[in-house]
């Protein structure tokens, strides 16, 4: 009897899989073929320049990226985190926006409109290639969970002032992902990001 329960649960799992893969993002027209196409939502977000973007297709697919979460009126971690990432952007120079992309997603999409984010980006010396992103609260929340910016303690998780301060870095084309604290020495973050490209002939240090 339990054996049957197992089989049933297995079958349900497969069914769930089919549903998620087949129907989950059926409304979007763009082809979704990268290694994480089935994982990342393709929700439409808005940039601090007030442009609509699809999360997976426009921001992630085939790219080397850095992703963190923040909100503009955060007086705890965010100012230091943003300043640190600004140092990363300066160090990476014009590669940001060309073949490396930086994304900061707001944890308070209700307050952080594109206009608010634009002011924040400006005051933090953000240059092209680094986008601050907002969207529908439910889309942002889903993204946050998919990207792992979740505290296992539900009380802590609800408290935005205690949000996760890591920066995810990866190369979607290779499905290669890692994360480090957003306050890691910026020169180290730069090294980590550059390591995301396949290179056979270069020594590590």
């Amino acid at each position: 009897m339990r054996r049957r329960a197992l089989l049933v649960s297995g079958a349900l799992a497969s069914l769930a899989s089919v549903i998620l893969r087949g129907v989950g993002f059926g409304r979007e027209s763009a082809p979704r073929t990268g290694p994480r196409a089935g994982y990342f939502p393709n929700a439409i977000l808005r940039t601090h320049e007030n442009k609509p973007v699809r999360f997976y297709d426009d921001l992630i697919k085939g790219k080397v990226v850095l992703i963190n979460f923040m909100y503009t009126n955060c007086d705890g971690l965010c100012p230091r985190q943003t300043a640190n990432l600004a140092a990363v952007q300066r160090a990476l120079g014009d590669r940001v926006g060309r073949d490396i992309f930086m994304y900061s997603i707001t944890l308070k999409p209700e307050e952080d409109t594109p206009k608010v984010l634009q002011e924040y980006a400006k005051s933090n010396g953000v240059k092209p290639g680094w986008l601050f992103l907002t969207g529908k609260p439910e889309d942002v929340e889903k993204l946050r969970r998919k990207l792992g910016f979740v505290d296992p303690d539900p009380t802590v998780d609800k408290d935005k002032s205690q949000h996760i301060g890591v920066v995810l870095y990866g190369n979607e084309a290779l499905d290669r992902w890692a994360a480090c604290p957003a306050l890691t020495d910026p020169t180290e973050i730069v090294r980590y990001v550059l390591w995301m490209e396949p290179k056979n002939k270069q020594a590590a240090d």
Binding site: L6, L7, S9, G10, L12, A13, A16, S17, L20, R21, G24, R36, G38, Y39, R145, K146, V150, P152, P154
Partner: peptide, 24 residues
């Protein structure tokens, strides 16, 4: 919990609908 690509373990409390385990 199941995300279409595979099995995630034990953390994403809000995604109960995606629940699955490794195959038997």
């Amino acid at each position: 919990f199941h995300y279409g690509l595979g099995t995630l373990l034990n953390r994403r409390i809000s995604n109960e609908d995606d629940k699955v385990t490794s195959p038997p």
